[in-house]
Every structure is written in structure tokens, then in C-alpha cells.
Nucleic acid binder design. Structure first.
Lengths: 206, 206, 206, 206
DNA sequence: CATGAATGAGGGTTCATTCAT
DNA sequence: AATGAATGAACCCTCATTCAT
């Protein structure tokens, strides 16, 4: 929508920015934040180092932009799925499928994403943590409300829907981690139904 | 037992080593591997930088020693629990309890532990990854064999025990992460039974 | 000739490089490789340490560049003299004169040069040794062939021309060392004819 | 003579000192002054580092002791030869032979010796230079007086005997350097007569 | 406005030397 | 007297960032 309004100059800028972020993503996911230099990024993106600094005020800022951008994309996709007006079970399955696909399509960013949302996020000083956390909390709240709805409709047992959400997150992440480590051995097609059944067995009203 | 044999000199050495590792753990878990300097660690441990290098031949070695030491301790504890000669359900519950306690008692090291066993560890070049991975693989295999036994005894449904293990890991980790982030909100006492029920509902033979 | 083509930028670069090498030469010849720090060189050359590393990838590289540059210059000059189409005696005398002048004009580099062509250069790990050695070997072979020519033409006695070359080198070096240590006492004007006579008395056909 | 007076304690001390110097010589001549650590020397000599420092107040002192000891030995030997009551020609030949033998027997120390008396002696700060220089000057003066005597006796031409000495030094060193670099190619047996003839042709009265 | 040369703080590491035991 | 653990100054080098062109 708003894209219509962009001048040629602004579009060009955006293209350059994307190019830089893409180069940075490649390098960061290959070698990690601290093992990549700004010069390296500039070179890979085919810009001068000074130009890089015109777009991002420092290395941390670049990193944050990179992770946030992807986090927002994920957020958008997953929130979209959770907001569909379908019955709970379909929504849940849809969520599992969508998340799996997200992983499958974006392997490189995932290490970064998890490095930040989970555990090992001391790479980067504060700030980023909070922004991502906020996004993630919003998402969890949405998931909780979907599950709560399922409880209200007696599709699920009487359980704390927050716990249910945590369980679902744990199950999906665990299998997707397996897939990340060895895609052949743990294919998408086996994981998705297994996660779904495992989850539903734990929560469905008998 | 063997400690009786240690000379005063050796005991002193061990005490120093522990002091250094403790200082390093504090700093690494506060700021991450790359944001901590050897000088900083030496200072916090109250030794000269040269003394630090007498104990650990370089920064990576120190880090590896730190993480491996803890990993081996966890491995020992959890393997012990999984090897008890009790019925499967008791063993599983015992495992959940033990893992919870391990987390509860060792919060600082956990970020490091997860940074290494899970995804985002480009912090350290190879080597460590592999050693820890090997330990973790061994543990998973033990867990798989416990679950497989449960399947054979018809306690559990006919399911791939590896998948079951992944599911159990996913559930425990997810709840323990929650606890890590906000211990008050997600107390140990609520988490353990929830994890257990969630897991068992998914796998028990009806 | 080719200098005409250099852009202002390139000329500036060259000037800086020369400045750094000059500073390094001063310091190295004052205190030796190991007693000079890169910071010291940078400071004396009036550049930041980082700039120094833009030009030379490490300390050894800088040292090697310094020594090789001069070695090549000497090589060029002396080879030139030995290649002139004159009678052997003139060429030999020309060589003695040229070598003396080279010493006289480049006192500081000489200690380095001798440190490398002669004996005591464990300062620097391999590599340089070989490159310089190769250059020096080439030069000696040229000298040998000049002397051999003299033997063929019956100007010199029937002697091993390699031995003659070694003798000539020994004589020139010895006198030039004396001059290096005390230029007043052992002036160029007395040394040159003495070296020539001494050498010729040893080799001339009577 | 004075050794008779040494107590057992003092003899033991001397033995230790020699052991340390021997270890240091091995290491220095293998790797050069700056690439050998005091710990390394202590270890090779099989003493504690502290004991090393009881004998030599610092690394430079150890180095100086090492080089001076050998220098004095050489000095003694060569001065002895030059002081024999024989005719000049025999003395000169004796000197060439003795010097050759000294080289042949003490290859390891030679690189150090030349590093200090010639050219590349910035390894060590002043002090050593002067002491060795003084010794060497004494020796040269002795050589000069031997040669002067030859001139007086009309064995040699009317030449500056100092120049003659320098020439003799240059010739012997050059051939001995060749031998150092490739002992097979430049054997002692060919070098000695060549040096003698070369020198004598330059100086003998016809 | 894009560029990339220049900067220098700060990191990991070594090793000569001291001193309590 | 002999020891060797402990020290910390100083080294080489990297890289995020700035700014004149």
C-alpha cells in the first residue's frame, strides 16, 4: 500500500538496505555475530564500509535490524494463521504446518532467531532481547487465547491454556531442532503429524 | 574418596581452578564468550593474567573446560536417574524431577549449556560442539532405550521411541525455559506434574 | 618512466610506504628485530598502528619487505657492474668501487644485510633467508663466471674461480667492516686500492 | 692451578654453571637469543628456573657469560698460536689451521660469535659488544705485530701490517663461512692451503 | 553523497623475573 | 639453598568507527 508512494530514490535505498541485510545474514549465520567484521559484510554486499554505516549506525544496530526484520515476518505469518476463523483443531494443525514451513524455508536465520529468543542470547547486549521478547509475548498471548477458546468450547480439557501453549511450543521446537540438525533423518512429513498427535493426546477432551 | 590422597598443594590448585572457572562462569553467563576478556576473568578471580594461562592454555580452552565440566556433571546425574531399576513411569517422573532440579540449581551455566547443545553455538569453533554433542547423543540413546522398554512392556503405545524422547526433551526444556525467565511465575511444583501428565497422555497405552 | 602513470593516490601510498620502511630501518638497525615493537615503528613513522598493518600484514612481512627491497637494489647495482663489457681487471676494480660506495651510502641497512646474508640470522624464520640466499647465489655465480672468463683469457692463473670469488668477497667485506666501525680511520680511498692489489697479487698470472 | 683450591661445593657449582651454559648454547644456536625462554633453558639444563637466576642475574647476563666464555677460549687459543717462537710463515699457517679447527669443532657457538663480533650484533644491548670488541682488538694487535715483524724481516713487502691483518681475517672468515654453510662442499683440506697461498701471494716479498 | 584510508582502543597471549616456601 | 608458582608489563594484531575527499 504505502509502497506506491515511494520515490525511485527511496526504492533504491530499500533495495540497498535489503542487499546489506542479506549479506549480513549469510555471514552471521555462517560464522556468528562476533566472527564477522563490518568490512566483510560491506564487501559481500558490494558497498563501501562508509555506506554501510549510513544505513546502520553500528554493528549492533545492523544485527538488531536483521533479527527484528525476520522476527516481524515470522510474527506476521504465525499471527495470521492463529487468527483464521476456523475450528481450533484446524488452526492448531495450521500453526504446526506454518511454523514447520517457516523453519524449512529460512534455515539460516533460525540459528540467529533461537540464539536470541532462547537461551544463548548474550551475544548482543540487551535491547534486542526486549523487542523480540515483546513480539514473542504478543504471539504467545494470541496462542493462549486460541487455546482458551478451545477449552471454553470443551474441545480441550480444563487446563491452563498458558501451559498448553508452552507445551506446544516445546514440542514444535524440539522436532524442528531435530530437523535443523539432520533434515534427511527427520523429515517434515513425519514430524508434523507426530507433533499434532502428541499435543492433542495431551489436551483433547476424551 | 580419592580426595584424601590429594596433597595440600594439589588441593590448593583445585581450589584455584574452581575459583577461576567460577569467575569465568559468572562473566560468560552475564555477557557471553566474546564480550568477556581474559583480563576481566583474571581480575574477577583475583589472579594475575599469567596465572590464568597456567591453568588454561587459552581462552577457548577455559571455555571448553567450563562447559564440559558442567555437561559431564549433568550427564552423570541424568544417566544415573535413567539407569535406576524401577518401572518406566517412575523413571520418567524421576527424570523430569532431576532435570528440573538441575536447572533450578545451576541457572547461570544453563545459558551456556543450551548455547552449546542447541542451535546457536557458533560462539566456539568446532571441537566443543562435538564433545558435548557426543555426550548428549549418548544420553538420548539411553532415554530412547528406556522408552523402548516401556513400549515393549506395553506401558506405552506403539510409537517410535526416538520421537517420544524428542517430545519429552521438548516439553521439559520449554517449561524449564519459562522457569528460567520468570521463576516466580512458573514454579517447579506446577511444572513437573504438568510435564509428566502432558507427556504421559501422549504416550500411555489406554 | 612508469612513474608518470601513477595517480596522486598511488604516489601518496608509495610515499607512506617509504616513510614506514625508513622508520623501521632506523629502529631495526638501532636495536634489532626483536627489540623493536610495531607500535614503536608506527610512532616513529607518524602513523597509527592500524595503518602500518594496512601496508604490511605483520611484523615479519615488514621486515622482509625492508631487507628484500635493499637486497634487490644491491643485487641490481652489483650485477650491473659485473655485466659491463670491459676487460676483467676493470670490471673487478669497478666491482670493488661499487660495493664500497654501496656500503658508504647505506650504512644502516648493512647490519641488516649482513645479518641476513651471513650467519647469524635466526632472527627471522626461514623464507627470508632463502629469498636473500637465492639472490646472493645468483650474484656469486655471475662473479664466478666473470672470473672464469679471466682465467680462460689467461689474465688470471689456473685457479678455481669459485675460490677466487670467495676470496674477493672476504677481502671486500673485511675492509668494509673496518670502515663501518670507524670510517675516519679506514677511508674508502685507501681501502679500494689495497683490496684490489691484494686480490690481484693473489690471482694474476705473472 | 687454582682449581686445586676449590672446595667440593665450589666444584659442584662450577659443574652446574657449565651445565646451564651448555643448555643455553644448544638452544640459542638452534633458535636464536629471542626465541629461547629462560624456562626452556632451565628445563633443558634440568634445573629450576630460580636456580638459573641464582647463577645469572638475568637473561642478558647469561647470554653474555656464554659468549664471553667462548670468546675467551678462542682468544687464548689464537693468541697462543700467534705467540709461538717460529718464523712468520709458519706462525701464519699455524694460525689459519688453528682458526679452521676452532670453527670445525665449535660450529654451534659460531653463529653466536659472529652475530656479536660482526655486523648483526644488535641482538643484545651494548656492553657485550664492547667486551668482545676489546678482546678482539687485542688479538688483532697481536696479529699486526706478528705481521709487522715479517715486514721488518723483509719476509713481507712494505705494507701496512694492519691492512694485512684485515685481509687475513677477511680471507679466513670468508672461507670458513662457506664451510659453515656447506661443510661437504668446502672441506677444510682445500680451504687451508688456498687461504694461505692467496694471502701469501698478496704479501710476500718476491 | 559515497567512499575507503586512517585511527587507536582493546583483545589474547608470552615470558622475564620475583619471592614465599 | 633450591624451588617453581605467581606476577604483570608488553607484545602482536584486529576491527568498529570516523571523516576528509
Amino acid at each position: 500500500m504505502q509502497e506506491v508512494k515511494l520515490s525511485r530514490r527511496e526504492r533504491e535505498k530499500l533495495r540497498q538496505r535489503r542487499q546489506m541485510l542479506a549479506a549480513a545474514l549469510e555471514l552471521f549465520s555462517e560464522k556468528g555475530f562476533h566472527n564477522v567484521s563490518m568490512h566483510e559484510i560491506a564487501k559481500r554486499a558490494e558497498f563501501a564500509i562508509g555506506t554501510l554505516y549510513k544505513f546502520f549506525k553500528n554493528k549492533e544496530d545492523l544485527y538488531k535490524a536483521l533479527v527484528m526484520e525476520k522476527a516481524e515476518e515470522y510474527h506476521r505469518v504465525l499471527m495470521g494463521v492463529l487468527s483464521e476463523e476456523k475450528d481450533v483443531l484446524t488452526v492448531i494443525e495450521g500453526y504446526i504446518v506454518a511454523k514447520s514451513r517457516l523453519f524449512t524455508d529460512n534455515l539460516p536465520i533460525l540459528r540467529l532467531y533461537f540464539a536470541e529468543t532462547r537461551g544463548a542470547s548474550f551475544n548482543i547486549r540487551a535491547g534486542l532481547d526486549q523487542d523480540i521478547q515483546r513480539l514473542y509475548d504478543k504471539f504467545i498471548m494470541r496462542l493462549v487465547s486460541v487455546l482458551q477458546d478451545g477449552v471454553r468450547r470443551k474441545v480441550f480439557r480444563e487446563m491452563d491454556p498458558y501451559h498448553m501453549a508452552v507445551a506446544l511450543e516445546g514440542l514444535t521446537n524440539a522436532f524442528l531442532f531435530c530437523w535443523m540438525e539432520d533434515p534427511e533423518q527427520h523429515p517434515y512429513e513425519t514430524n508434523v503429524p507426530f507433533i499434532r498427535d502428541m499435543f492433542l493426546n495431551g489436551v483433547l477432551n476424551k
